[in-house]
């Protein structure tokens, strides 16, 4: 076996996403002259930030072989809880956000417990969670779209700038880097991958699969909470239907980034690129004056395509030849 060639191929495969991203940018800038303007790109950045923050935690659910469909509702609820704590209860914003985060962790913990200890499929548990979290959000906010005017410290999270760059970017970069380190360089990351790859083998090697999975759902819900706080601060608004379909965007970003939904592999960097792509695609649809209805449509198609490209095994010939051209050595 020629190892250098294999390594070169691997590098090409790793960079494949970048090529696709650049291609996407090129196409969009040709189609719309407004695309490559600073104003537009910073617009894209907002949505990329929210999706990217969500992805940083969400990714652990598919890595351990599960899924978390409750991230969108969780984010919306987080904004509402934070607002209630700060502006109705009157707690200073820092402890209020800490309490909000604790709520998110608790929800994730419940998702984890029900999936692992009761053997209920993760997508059912988290879909149910999505539903009741939405209900709680509606109940607490009375279905209103609440405008958040204070406190200043809280609003600074979304609209403030540091060294000329918006604060949400720092937050996203921070959580993405943290998540990358967690996945690649910590004991938990190793355990998560092992559980997703072969639960029995992991168990025999001394890993506790249930505890690892519960932790994955806690991380997912926590990241969604952070995203919700940033979103509420950015838009100065808390509304139960905010981020309603975000779980689909997050799944798209992660799947496009090469994470397998079957568990055992995942890439935070890939998910970030995926998030940028999702942002570009949505932005492109807007720029091209496509109706908003194209958003879920395109997302659905992209998910299916990405899954087919990620998956080995039975494939129609045209996809196989496409994979070959894209430089994927396959298995």
């Amino acid at each position: 076996m020629n190892l250098t060639a294999a390594k070169a191929r691997q590098l090409l495969k790793d960079l494949r996403l970048f090529f696709v991203l650049i291609l996407l940018m090129a196409v969009l800038s040709v189609l719309s002259p407004r695309f490559l303007t600073l104003g537009n790109l910073s617009n894209v950045l907002w949505s990329v930030c929210i999706i990217g923050i969500m992805c940083s935690g969400f990714i652990y659910a598919p890595i351990t072989g599960g899924i978390d469909l409750s991230v969108g509702s969780m984010a919306a609820l987080a904004g509402i809880i934070a607002n209630v704590l700060m502006n109705q209860v009157g707690i200073p914003w820092v402890p209020a956000l800490v309490i909000t985060l604790a709520c998110g962790m608790f929800i994730g913990f419940i998702n984890g417990i029900v999936t692992t200890k009761f053997g209920v499929p993760a997508f059912i548990v988290t879909m149910a969670a999505k539903t009741y979290l939405f209900g709680i959000a509606m109940l607490v906010s009375n279905g209103d779209m609440i405008t958040i005017m204070k406190p200043k410290g809280f609003l600074a999270i979304g609209v403030g700038k540091l060294f000329g760059l918006p604060i949400p970017i720092y937050i996203m970069v921070a959580v993405i880097v943290a998540s990358h380190i967690l996945l690649k360089h910590t004991v938990f990351g190793r355990k998560a991958i092992a559980v997703g790859a072969n639960e029995v083998a992991a168990k025999l090697s001394g890993v506790d699969p249930d505890r690892t999975r519960i932790m994955a759902y806690v991380l997912s819900a926590t990241a969604a909470t952070v995203a919700g706080i940033v979103m509420a601060s950015l838009t100065q608004q808390a509304y139960a239907a905010n981020a309603g379909g975000y779980e689909l965007d997050v799944i798209t970003a992660v799947v496009v980034g090469g994470t397998s939904l079957m568990g055992g592999s995942g890439s935070v960097a890939g998910a970030l690129i995926g998030a940028v792509m999702v942002g570009f695609i949505n932005n492109g649809l807007n720029l091209l004056n496509m109706p908003s209805s194209f958003h879920p449509l395109v997302t659905g198609v992209v998910i299916l395509l990405a899954l087919l490209l990620n998956q080995g095994g039975k494939m129609p010939k045209f996809i196989l030849s496409m994979r070959k051209r894209l430089g994927d050595p396959g298995k």
Partner: peptide, 10 residues
Amino acid sequence: LASRGILAGL
């Protein structure tokens, strides 16, 4: 879930 998205858009 993907076809749900596609159909909702359609």
